[in-house]
Nucleic acid binder design. Structure first.
Lengths: 345, 345
DNA sequence: TATACCCGGGACATAAAACGTCCATCATTT
DNA sequence: AAATGATGGACGTTTTATGTCCCGGGTATA
């Protein structure tokens, strides 16, 4: 309960002071180290905290000024009010940096440039799901630049991201396009719908790609010859940013009404995860792809920013599979999924 | 409930990140101004916020980066998420800086160098009383320098300050002395007791001044001839710092068992407040002084730092009287008293 | 339609802060 | 008594923040 309020306050403040947490953690861990060390010297402490001597000295001077620690010729030690402060801070730090540590572990394990973990479990909490959307939207805004082409997929998570986008001069010139052709999902979670919502919310532009599923080969061939469609497909393939959800393979297969034959194949091949129309096994190998047009796996190589967004304990393993494939640049997930992911490193 | 948590977090942050809190306030008020202005230009805003154009620009660039405001050729305006943030931050800012504003008003109204206001009402909350002690101790620590002589008075607030002092190399060479001779108060709140506690807590030294009340003139004269006593009195009069409580005149008179005759005089003269043995009326004039040795009013002129500490709604008017006398350099009080004080400007 | 005004943003020299590095001096321990 | 390890001062260098000016472009007004 109080944790929620705490987190809320910090989240609000982080918008105005993004480096708030960094500074807080730095100063906290200095005090913390001094507390456990009893009396300690500047150089010793600097190396144990992996800081240069000079910058540690700056912080120590500050902390001394605040009366949180004391120095004498034998070294530094924590003061009474410093000890009290540390005690009061513990829950805050633990809450705020439990997730940060998770982020860091995942980032290192899969060699991703950024990982964002929001609190909670999207499977059971709609609040967590909304948070995921907010964080996803923030991540997208961070990476977008003038006049980008942004390819997006469908799904409830992506819909949540669209929900949390706001008008922004940065995205005014951007194009939103669906990463792949039509899916058998409900309309308001289709990639097409989401691309258009995102464009409307941000003030950007959009192009749609309506390619029905289960098309016969000849109808398919003539469709992709269509100049209109080709134009969109080319735009999709030359996108700079991809934002996509990640799903459980079997769940997605069912939702897309994949025929029994294919489902069996998927199962036999150990398909675990689905993302932008591709199915992945535990090792991150592609075992199947959805028969439609749009972004191909080989295009991903050239895409500058691939942002995967998915949460919920049940998706943890699927997310790990996709990460293992090694094309992701940014992962946005929730606490429950993150913990699952770490079980599969 | 949540208010308590919020205050706790902010309190921690104020200790650990005072500089960032200022930045937070700055950015908040920029957004705030833009909100009420609708669309506004950089230069206009800069002058209205009393900032230079360049530094405002830096902040605006940051806020734009965060997606909190938008700019076009006609000027800047707040974005949707900016508006939401502003709304969410209002209670935080109010809590974090409401007291700061009070401090500033009192500081200006009475021309004091520093005012510190802690939350709450010492009359009704022991927590507020403790806070007052903590803040008083912090103020003393701030102003003390090597080998100072510090004169202190008695009273429960001063006892609370003594409680919150901690060993400190800064105060190791300091002398603590009682500002005036003995009072008819209970032993553990007498100036003598408090001076000795403070010395013990900080690692400093102390001298006591035992001059019984209601001494006959001849006994008094012979007492103040005593070299031991003279030495202490001289120390007191040459002190660099004074820390004193402030009381309601009538309450103090009763507590000191002042005789009925004097009490009537006090009432007739409009005595409202008492501090270091002097009684003040509403205009800050001295209407009576306690017959004992020690710090005289004329010594105060020379004293470099006079720190007054008192809180509680009931003491507001008394504090205002003493402030009006115009010898205070630092005031430490609580929210309830501060609000009362502001009614008497 | 012409004009005067205010806008954001680019540019750049300069002031200020942060930082890396070295050293003098002091207390404590061996 | 020497050696170790501590703080705090000093100083040159690098990075950041700031003051200032100007430009091209919208906008409201005459």
């Amino acid at each position: 309960m109080s944790v929620v309020i705490m987190r809320e306050i910090l989240d609000i403040q982080k918008q105005l002071l993004p480096d708030l947490m960094d500074v807080m953690k730095k100063r906290y861990s200095i005090l913390q180290h001094i507390l456990v060390s009893g009396v300690v010297g500047r150089r010793t402490l600097a190396s144990s905290l992996d800081m240069t001597e000079r910058v540690l000295r700056g912080e120590v001077d500050f902390l001394k000024e605040q009366g949180l620690l004391e120095t004498d010729a034998s070294g530094m030690k924590i003061s009474e009010s410093g000890r009290r402060l540390l005690e009061a801070m513990e829950p805050i730090i633990k809450m705020a940096f439990g997730l940060t540590d998770l982020e860091e572990s995942i980032r290192k394990a899969f060699q991703i440039s950024q990982v964002i973990v929001v609190p909670g479990d999207s499977d059971t909490s709609t609040f967590a799901k909304k948070e995921l959307g907010r964080a996803g939207a923030a991540a997208l805004r961070k990476y977008v630049s003038k006049d980008d082409i942004i390819a997006v997929t469908g799904g409830s998570t992506m819909a949540q991201i669209a929900n949390n986008l706001a008008i922004s001069s940065k995205m005014k010139g951007s194009w939103f396009v669906p990463a792949r052709g039509g899916l058998g999902e409900s309309v308001d979670m289709q990639a097409n719908t989401i691309a258009s919502i995102m464009a409307k919310k941000t003030g950007g532009k959009y192009r749609l790609l309506h390619v029905p599923d289960h098309l016969g080969e000849e109808a398919y061939q003539s469709l992709i010859q269509d100049p209109q469609i080709q134009e969109v497909v080319n735009a999709v393939r030359s996108c700079r940013i991809v934002v996509h959800g990640i799903g459980d393979a079997m769940v997605m297969a069912r939702r897309r009404k994949v025929d029994a034959e294919t489902t069996r194949t998927l199962q036999a091949d150990g398909a675990l995860a689905e993302a932008f129309g591709y199915y992945f096994d535990r090792q991150g190998n592609v075992v199947h792809k959805m028969p439609t047009v749009g972004l191909r796996l080989e295009d991903l190589q050239r895409v500058e920013v691939v942002i995967g967004v998915a949460g919920g304990k049940s998706k943890g393993e699927a997310i790990a599979s996709v990460l293992r494939h090694g094309q992701e640049d940014v992962l946005v997930t929730d606490e429950a999924a993150a913990l699952e992911i770490m079980k599969h490193v």
